[in-house]
């Protein structure tokens, strides 16, 4: 009786494994349909796209012309540059604010620090679509409408709360003995932060920085509402406004432009997947 049950269990397990692989492969194919179709389209000329007889899922005469023309397009390069400059500054500012605050909230309890930590988490849940109208007025009063740098005011509100929240979690997991020993040796709080906490919590810092990067690179509603001239736009809104003229949709270029714009986050993800995933789950499993 006993050996039979064991073999049936292991056979069952083998079939479950095969079935899982097969089902997951089907999901992978389904999930990659849109990016695949974008890629196929990006390799086509406008003539091939409008030739309706051919299979839209395949490319007859692949060409890189869409990519080359976009890279030569001054506006498109400008969108890319604007996206890079605003993202770099937002990541730097957000990380500075959240590391300092998280260190203080994780280690140096003060009056109201518990409330502040809960408040940080709640502001993470405030969506951009709730605040874009009052911000339109505020950014306008500051004279920063249609200015890429105006995004510097609004983007950190999306990145800082979550970064702070997960950094609190990472910092709290560092043993207290470490900083108490340093404190007795006469180290200042800043020394403890820079010499102990930041190096030890590096994985958490990378995860938080990736989050800030993704948020800032992919933001859509704020630039759509506040930026309207080509020299100030970022990638997410620039592609649509530049490549759709009245009723003329340059689909090949729109797809090529989107894929190139999606490349930085995808590349970062390819190399730092584990940090990315830990950042994703940290909000609920740490902190």
């Amino acid at each position: 009786m006993k050996p039979r049950r064991l073999t049936s269990l292991s056979r069952q397990r083998r079939w479950a494994l095969r079935g899982s692989y097969a089902a997951l492969a089907v999901f992978v194919v389904l999930f990659l349909v849109p990016p695949f179709h974008m890629f196929v389209t990006s390799l086509k000329t406008s003539a091939e796209i409008s030739g309706q007889a051919a299979n839209p899922w395949l490319v007859q005469h692949p060409t890189l012309r869409n990519y080359i023309e976009l890279l030569a397009n001054e506006h498109y390069r400008g969108f890319f540059l604007n996206s890079i400059k605003i993202t770099v500054v937002v990541v730097a500012v957000s990380m500075a604010i959240s590391i300092l605050a998280a260190f203080s909230l994780a280690r140096m309890r003060f009056w109201g620090s518990g409330v502040l930590a809960a408040g940080v988490f709640l502001t993470y849940l405030v969506p951009d679509s709730l605040l874009f109208i009052p911000f339109f007025q505020i950014v306008g009063k500051l004279g920063l409408i249609n200015n890429t740098w105006g995004m510097l005011i609004v983007y950190p509100t999306l990145a800082v709360p979550f970064c702070t929240w997960i950094m609190i979690g990472y910092f709290s997991s560092i043993p207290k003995e470490l900083d108490e020993a340093a404190l007795i040796d006469g180290a200042s709080w800043l020394q403890i932060l820079f010499k102990i906490f930041i190096p030890v919590a590096m994985p958490g810092i990378i995860a938080a920085a990736i989050f800030a990067f993704t948020v800032s690179w992919g933001q859509f509603i704020y630039p759509l509402a506040y930026l309207y001239s080509a020299d100030q736009m970022v990638l997410t809104v620039g592609i649509i406004s530049e490549l759709i003229r009245a009723d003329v949709f340059e689909w090949g270029k729109i797809m090529a432009g989107s894929l190139m714009a999606a490349a930085p986050p995808v590349i970062i993800y390819a190399f730092l997947m584990d940090y990315y995933v830990s950042g994703l789950t940290a909000g609920a499993t740490k902190g």
Binding site: F31, P34, G218, F220, T236, M255, S258, A262, V266, Y276
Partner: peptide, 14 residues
């Protein structure tokens, strides 16, 4: 995870 990684504004264009 790729659908989650590509910025939504770009994949929605696709």
């Amino acid at each position: 995870l790729i659908p989650w990684v590509v910025p939504l504004a770009l994949s929605t264009l696709g």
